[in-house]
Design a protein around this nucleic acid. Sequence first.
DNA 1: CTGGATCCGTAACGATACTG
DNA 2: CAGTATCGTTACGGATCCAG
Lengths: 124, 124
Amino acid sequence: MSQAYDVYNDRCPTRMVLDRIADKWAVLILDRLQDGPVRFNHLRRDIHGISQKVLSQTLKKIERDGLVSRTVYATVPVTVEYALTPLGRTLTETVRTLAHWAEKNMDAVLAAQQAYDAATAPPR
Amino acid sequence: MSQAYDVYNDRCPTRMVLDRIADKWAVLILDRLQDGPVRFNHLRRDIHGISQKVLSQTLKKIERDGLVSRTVYATVPVTVEYALTPLGRTLTETVRTLAHWAEKNMDAVLAAQQAYDAATAPPR
DNA sequence: CTGGATCCGTAACGATACTG
DNA sequence: CAGTATCGTTACGGATCCAG
């Protein structure tokens, strides 16, 4: 993280953006949209564990951030498609590097956790 | 995000790791440790807005994940230093790319938010 | 100095029911 | 289909006090 801004202080704009990135559901949604527009209930089905309420809220947030677009089709019943904006696409691309890290180092993290637990819990 | 794992399903290990990355305070701490070991109260002072409770909890979490090491010096009073592990360092490096994105696109996000708010709120 | 323990308010979330 | 509204619960964070 660059020191161009005072990242550790409140009112830091970078920190503000970090708040948004640090949203698990938002990241998952952004990722799911990478292959093209997806409808509301389709997202709901694909992202297991998300409630329709949280999905709705999160979509609104990232739409406000300019990361996704919302397109309503006057079909009956109505159809709504969410898609990445160009800005959103640049973000998912950098998020990809995080995912790669996760896949590569997951085993190491798991091992570390087990070691930690073994070193702290067993005294019992 | 790669599709090697079923990222959208629970029980997905990548998603588990994502949970940790999606922790604003953890990211801030990891970042602060990039230039070398830092003591508890020093972290507390530098990362404005974090409470000592949350700092303590977060440090434990990322220590358990093997991302930071905790070293106690038998001074008086006692001194504790936190430092990045090699694993932790690889993570901060990828997180850096996120920060770069934030700095580069912050203005665009801000503009998008204002446009969104202007398009939704004003009907009032 | 480095935390642990406690209390307590708030914001987040899940479930459910209802609407255009 | 795509949401909104309401309710109840829970998890999280802040503040304070205390201990090794």
